[in-house]
């Protein structure tokens, strides 16, 4: 049983979960929860908020498994839930202790990969990323960090693939502009 669960696709596991097999849910959780937490940490800028949102995401998955449609892909559905949870959190406001003195979300996200790194460059890149509008930032996060294709991102966000490509293209181009401006500030 354990071996078969480990080799099943997400969609098969979800079908088995909907049919009442709890081990299928465990397998989906083990497979995706760390990545969803990483995504939510990047999206919100706050590890504590991301932990809360991971809980909401998987609670939503359990509560709404009857809304998952056979034939659709699991990962975009899961990331759609996570993105919606983060949007709802943003809409309703944040825990005051997680905001900066100016009332913004913190830009610094704890390091995920150990090893030598250019902290100044990282900060600049994160600042630039943070300045992108949500409509461009989310496709970029999903594409660059979660390794999703544009079709999957389109499923996640409920948009057409071409709309996602346009947003990502503008976002990447804007990111380069912002970084160039930040570099000029730093050197000037």
């Amino acid at each position: 049983m354990r071996a078969s669960v480990a080799t099943e696709t997400d969609e098969v596991l979800m079908a088995r979960f909907c049919a009442g097999e709890a081990p299928a849910f465990d397998a989906l959780f083990q497979r995706h929860a760390p990545a969803v937490r990483g995504y939510l940490t990047r999206l919100t800028g706050s590890p504590a908020t991301a932990e809360d949102l991971v809980q909401l995401t998987f609670l939503s998955l359990v509560r709404s498994r009857g809304r998952f449609q056979a034939g659709s892909r699991f990962r975009p559905w899961l990331y759609a839930i996570a993105t919606n949870a983060a949007r709802d959190q943003l809409r309703r406001g944040h825990r005051p202790e997680e905001l900066t003195a100016e009332g913004h979300l913190p830009v610094d996200v704890p390091a995920e990969v150990a090893g030598p790194r250019d902290v100044g460059l990282e900060r600049a890149v994160r600042q630039a990323l943070d300045q992108l509008p949500e409509g461009q930032r989310v496709p970029i996060l999903l594409h660059r960090f979660e390794g999703m294709g544009f079709a999957e991102i389109a499923d996640t966000l409920g948009l057409t693939e071409s709309a996602v490509k346009v947003r990502a293209h503008r976002g990447y181009a804007r990111l380069r502009e912002l970084l160039a401006a930040l570099r000029e500030e730093a050197t000037g």
Binding site: F25, D26, F29, A33, P34, A35, R37, G38, Y39, T41, R42, A50, E51, V54, Q55, T57, F58, L59, L61, V62, V109, E112, V113, R117, D118, L121, E122, V125, R126, A128, L129, I140, R144, F145, E146, G147, L175, R176, L179
Partner: peptide, 28 residues
């Protein structure tokens, strides 16, 4: 430009369950 903050794999934090994930799993 995002290379400097991109993890090597798609699943950042994989293999680090942590109490937050355990709580999420238990609640679910």
């Amino acid at each position: 430009a995002l290379e400097s903050i991109a993890p090597s794999g798609g699943d950042a934090g994989a293999g680090a369950p942590g109490t937050g994930l355990e709580t999420a799993h238990r609640l679910a």
